[in-house]
Simulated assay, not measured.
Amino acid sequence: MVGWQQQSKAYSAEKQFNSLSLLVSRQRAWIEINLSALAHNVRTLKDFLAPQTRLMAVVKADAYGHGAVTVAKTALANGADCLAIATLSEGVELRQAGITSPILILGAVNAPEDIKAIAAWELEPTICNPEQALAFASTMTGLGKSLLVHLKLDTGMSRLGTNWQEATPFVQFVQKLPNLEIASIYSHFATAEESDRRIMNLQHQRFRQVIEQLKVEGFVSPSIHLANSAATLSDRTTHYDRVRVGLALYGLYPADHLQQVIELKPVLQLKAKIAQVKTIPAGEGVSYGRKFITQKDTKVAVVGIGYADGIPRNLSNRLRAIVSGQLVSQIGSITMDQLMLNVDHLTDVQPGDTVTLIGQQNKLSITADDWANALDTISWEILCGFKHRLPRINVN
């Protein structure tokens, strides 16, 4: 019986591999999502937290380009307690996929029809000010039902939320409104990824002051949360009842100085196929604007991916890729659907060969951080920039 089960598992694995190979063979470019790496990151983060601290997986922006439904289900299956998204539609997508866990909407919603939809889909909104609270209370009273809400305080981010100095009357105001039940009070750090902790400490001090003042006034919030990925890794005193983890979930560190805290594994790899290999004579320009001129006869691989897929055009002549286990340079302007690689030093490169643009091959690695550093931006922007015409293929 055991032998039969092993054969069955082997058959299933082979069938899955063949299906994956067939799916990849039909793509010009794609993103691979390593669900084992994602599961590892969730479990590692969960183990890093105190037992009473819940892990909120941030899956907004289609899970930072990784695929919200798949990421949410994998995160919940491996220890995440709840989810956070940015918009109503993102929350509806998760509910329609059968996800029943608590879902916090981090963005602000004001329209009565949207409030009704939040109630219908049993989502949990963020309330940022008294006017918004009144709109929610009025709509919910009309529906004859109550709603869990989360109150957002501005402790120094200067974005959504009521100013921390007005927090106590704000919370007391919401407490008195009908059909609203306060689920948590939270705030957000502006500089948690920086090694200079002064602003972060100031925000934390303000947040603690609000919480203590509320206790004096007789209110104890059912839940308190403050930490994003950077704060989660850098300061355990910010963990409170739950932490909101986004970037670390996907295997990237918010800052270099946090890389030694826990071991994270990158979840996303970006790959494409070579469409044509050709030799360009010396002195010829490559791509629009002739931003690259060949100095000698040069073998070039044309790859089926471009800025319409989310590769920033400003990476032109700065991008690197891995082909046949070797690093190669991108040359010429990146175009809408294609880019060119200098493969002059490769002896055997053919149309259909796979190019790794972000990911690992042998001992070589290219990361979203590499792109971000070249562009003087952040890895969050890189991940969120990959377009939906790139299929997400789940691998283990």
Rank of each mutant, 00 (worst) to 15 (best):
L49G: 01
A372M: 05
Q295D: 14
Q203K: 06
A275F: 13
G310C: 00
G79H: 08
K387M: 11
V243I: 13
E122L: 04
T237V: 13
A68R: 01
D370W: 01
I280V: 14
L23E: 15
D81K: 07
N179C: 14
V355H: 00
S12N: 14
F292P: 03
D114K: 11
A37I: 06
M1N: 13
P130E: 09
G91L: 08
T238I: 04
L346D: 10
V300F: 08
A301Q: 06
Q203T: 02
N163H: 14
A63K: 04
K215Y: 12
L160N: 09
F170E: 03
H345I: 01
T356A: 09
L160M: 12
S223F: 07
E113Y: 02
I305R: 00
F386W: 05
N394S: 15
I366M: 00
A111S: 13
D81N: 13
E193K: 09
A29Y: 06
K176N: 14
L123K: 02
L180F: 07
S19F: 14
G332Q: 02
Q132R: 03
R208D: 10
V42Y: 08
V2T: 13
K46R: 13
V109T: 04
R320H: 13
V92T: 06
G359T: 02
L346P: 05
E181T: 08
R318K: 15
K176R: 15
L147P: 07
A282V: 07
S158W: 13
S221G: 09
I382K: 02
T162N: 12
Q132S: 10
S229E: 03
N179W: 11
L160A: 10
I182R: 03
R43F: 11
I127F: 03
A282G: 01
G156W: 02
D297C: 10
L233D: 06
I118P: 10
D376E: 11
I322V: 02
Y11I: 13
K145P: 02
K215T: 10
M140Y: 08
H225E: 09
E166H: 14
